[in-house]
Design a protein around this nucleic acid. Structure first.
Lengths: 235, 235
DNA sequence: AATGACCAAGTGATCTGATCATTTTCACTC
DNA sequence: GAGTGAAAATGATCAGATCACTTGGTCATT
């Protein structure tokens, strides 16, 4: 009896999927590491290749593994996460978009406050990098990239709270589809204002001023929400 | 040219998956509706059965569809959601558990406040039902079921906010694995106290007292967190 | 007429084994 | 030593068959 092979029976595919996760855990693999070939897994678990592939697709759907054509199966970036953005989510309707932003305006300010108290080292540096990158992208006029980086800033801010679950939640609600939706609606806030506000939030967090960080984050998101509400009423 | 068949090429499986989602959307199917048989989908998209199944497994992983042996393929309960609890998440460690509860203590109070302002009809009734059910389960001594219902109460509370995204976030952080973890750690709060606190929150929401609802929810979750911290230090 | 046992069709689950496409490695050439 | 190209490893997809479960209807029993 050991770590591998020989599933215990229950529904084959369920068992396969969890056995493979267990295998990854046993080997202490983490995101990016190579796992094991499809054929080898089929041999190990005594099942056919298509069955293994179904199980892998299930894991792949949530970012637990990645299948790279011609290369192999790798551990995915979202292994072990509790909260996820639905990878199959449709681009949100205007209503859903507003709802999403309201949710962010509710959640992120207290997260910023916590971040100001905790000030997780690595995340602070990441925020700084995000701000630098954003400034460059504004100068270069690359608005698509800028939108990404701005979202990154919010994610870095959440990571500074030191709470991985909160970081996952914020990551999930700063989902990229939103950018597409904003572009469809031709909504663009004042980019320089956004950057300034982000800088102010960063400074507040760095200074450990929780109340200020919370207030600035709330005002920032409420501002974004106001812009969007305005534009939507116009159309 | 029409709604079905004939994918546009990009990576077959990606296309298949999104084509199937598009098909579901076109037919205006919603959770629980029967979709289409695997073989029929294979014919429609001119691909082999195992390929269709891989795509279906991908959709299944996030609750977009369900495959019922001998019966058919059905639309899943999570279709269209933005935020999800990772269905493959491991039972959290003690640290992760505390983190999770801290996240809840941060997020849920403002959600409760919003709920008190919005008071979405259906959700209020659901909260009431949850409370009734909880009282009965306490009497019956069914602690496992009770834990579920208590989580349901928190989800119903979030739904009362009228913001689907917030409801999804709260649903994701009230993930069921936590119950297992609590049982492993032999942590049980005072059940009657929990029920009383839930009732008080419900009353505050019903009365439209946002400040009170927020405060009570915060105290409630901080209390749960305190209990867990105590027990963990003992061991 | 109501009930229950049984059968048959539909459908998902899994297998076998082959072929194509992409990536990676490495020996060979220049 | 650098570039090139074949070969190996590996994922992607196909085809068709068989097993297992669900469901609805038939039919005998009561």
């Amino acid at each position: 009896m050991s770590t591998s092979g020989g599933v215990v029976r229950r529904s084959l595919l369920d068992d396969l999927a969890s056995s493979m996760l267990a295998l990854i855990a046993d080997r202490k693999l983490s995101a990016g590491d190579q796992f094991e070939s499809v054929r080898s897994l089929a041999d190990r678990f005594k099942v056919a290749v298509p069955t293994v592939r179904e199980a892998l697709r299930r894991l792949e759907a949530t970012g637990a593994v990645e299948l790279r054509h011609g290369s192999g199966v790798y551990v995915g970036p979202h292994i072990g996460r509790l909260v996820l953005a639905n990878p199959l989510a449709p681009t949100p309707s205007s209503d859903r978009l507003i709802e999403l932003l309201q949710a962010r305006a509710l959640i992120e300010p207290p997260v910023a406050a916590l971040a100001a108290r905790v000030r997780s080292e690595a995340a602070l540096e990441r925020m700084d990098k995000d701000l630098t990158a954003a400034a460059e992208l504004i100068a270069a006029g690359d608005h698509a990239q800028l939108a990404e980086i701005n979202m990154d800033f919010h994610r870095s801010l959440a990571q500074a709270s030191g709470n991985a679950t909160l970081a996952e939640v914020v990551e999930s609600v700063t989902v990229v589809n939103v950018r597409e939706q904003l572009e469809i609606l031709h909504i663009h806030g004042d980019r320089q204002t956004d950057l300034d506000e982000h800088r102010a939030i960063h400074a507040a967090v760095l200074a450990g001023d929780a109340e200020l960080a919370e207030r600035l984050t709330r005002e920032h998101l409420d501002g974004v929400l106001a812009v969007i509400n305005n534009r939507l009423q116009q159309s």
